[in-house]
Design a protein around this nucleic acid. Structure first.
Length: 416
RNA sequence: GUGGCUAUAGUGUAAAGGUUAGCACGACAGACUGUGGCUCUGUCCGCACGGGUUCGAAUCCCGUUAGCCACCCCA
């Protein structure tokens, strides 16, 4: 028996209605904020991610699904969205069409992690990239939009945490500071992982969850002293706009993010209902990415929400489909008549269903009830002879007779 | 990827080496021979997979697979 591969899952009808709702309200909101959908391929050249997400990051170094295709090309399943969007932005000269682009995407992403609740090898994101502005109001609006999408989806109790990483030079400065501070005697207090991090990716020491490391970091490291004046003002402006938009948030100076391209504003949204992997969304500014990739020198800012995790927080809604009319039939002549009416009604935008198995009327009534039919149209031998059918209102139990001739118009009135 | 825990009908569960693996929900059918929801009755569906130990394995052991938990890290 072949089963779904590790870390992937089927989204069944009982759950897909929740997905559709999230996607629909999100699309409506995104339109409201001026975003347009972009759909990029699920596979990309491996180099796109290695170069731009960062060779040393975990995502690239151990979590990508990479392979060599029949043309000897190095291909990877996309592990995140931003690199692809910027690639497309540059490749299609979107900056020539309009300097400022607001793009969104919804789709699957792939990371070869060990699966756990809320952690899948194929997961789904709604993401947003606003490209072409350095203005702090954009940071604030993007953050507000992420909150709006969660609110509209009906998600409550999430926490929004903000930090300022500074520009690329500031990040370098901070890396060097951390290296200098911890490479000698103080480094001995760090956990084994952090000793490694200091060498490979010093910034990650900041968000180590080990209590010992946190203490050392907090004591030694003076908050934000590495950030240049320009970046400092930028973040202050961001906070000002966020205040205007009335977004609940907290500042967490230890948020780093696992992708190299982030600069200045970064944020994470967490939810207690998710357990240890509590991130439901995250994002930030990345002002060097386009230029680094050979595109125009434009600032940009974006985020992504995990749809799988959103549905986890919402819990499983069990909505079954409902129809306006269920056509119950008895006998071969009635079956054929019913099949015709079924088609007529559907052509008139009336949802309807029939029992294909010619079961007993009782069984058909039960079926109608369990699928939540508003009305049942009953056609039997008697009705065929008289040229009419009985329409039963399932709530009031009232039954009226309708001639076959004006079936559609009468039913249309009723269903309205 | 590392370490640990778990695996019984569609779902939730019981059976502490010994006959036909029990219960609830569910699906289907009937009680009412042309009228749903409630009730009652019946039927259906299972020991994750592969080895081993034993007279005998759902139960003990090993492996595989998958899920879950922690770590790493992240949506």
């Amino acid at each position: 028996m072949i089963k779904a591969v590790r870390g992937t899952k089927d989204i069944l009808p009982a759950e897909s209605c929740v997905w559709q709702e999230i996607e629909k309200t999100s699309r409506d909101n995104l339109k409201l904020f001026g975003y347009q959908e972009i759909r990029t391929p699920v596979i990309e050249e491996t180099a796109l991610f290695v170069k731009n997400i960062g060779e040393e990051t975990d995502i690239v170094s151990k979590e990508m699904f990479s392979f060599v295709d029949r043309g000897e090309r190095n291909i990877s399943l996309r592990p995140e969205g931003t690199a692809s969007i910027i690639r497309s932005y540059i490749e299609n000269n979107l900056d020539k069409i309009s300097q400022f682009q607001k793009l969104y995407y919804i789709g699957p992403f792939f990371r070869a992690e060990r699966p756990q609740a809320g952690r899948l090898r194929q997961f789904h994101q709604i993401g947003v990239e606003a490209i072409g502005s350095l203005h702090p109001a954009l940071d604030a609006e993007v953050i507000a939009l992420s909150a709006k999408l969660l609110d509209s989806a009906g998600i409550k109790g999430y926490k929004l945490k903000l930090n300022n990483l500074g520009c690329r030079d500031d990040k370098k400065k901070l890396s060097k500071m951390l290296k200098d501070i911890f490479s000698d005697k103080k480094g001995e207090h760090l956990c084994e992982d952090c000793k490694r991090r200091i060498k490979m990716n010093p910034l990650r020491v900041l968000d180590c969850k080990n209590d010992g490391c946190r203490e050392v970091v907090r004591k030694t490291f003076k908050e934000a002293s590495f950030i240049c004046a320009e970046c400092k003002t930028h973040f202050e402006e961001v906070l000002k706009f966020i205040g205007m938009l009335n977004i609940k948030h907290e500042i967490d100076p230890y948020i780093v993010r696992g992708l190299d391209y982030y600069t200045r504003t970064v944020f994470e949204i967490t939810h207690e209902g998710l357990g240890s992997k509590d991130a439901i969304g995250a994002g930030g500014r990345y002002d060097n990415l386009s230029l680094d990739m050979g595109g125009p020198d434009v600032g940009a800012c974006g985020f992504a929400l995990g749809i799988d995790r959103m549905t986890m927080v919402l819990g499983r809604g069990k909505e079954s489909s409902t129809v306006d009319i269920f056509i119950a039939n008895i006998g071969d002549a009635a079956y054929e008549k019913a099949f015709g009416i079924l088609n007529d009604l559907r052509n008139n935008e009336i949802s309807c269903e029939i029992d294909y198995e010619k079961r007993s009327l009782k069984a058909q009534m039960r079926a109608a009830d369990s699928m939540g039919a508003k009305f049942v149209l009953i056609i039997g031998e008697d009705e065929i002879v008289k040229g009419e059918a009985a329409l039963r209102d399932m709530k009031t139990k009232e039954q009226i007779l309708i001639k076959f001739n004006d079936m559609v118009s009468k039913i249309k009135e009723k269903v309205r």
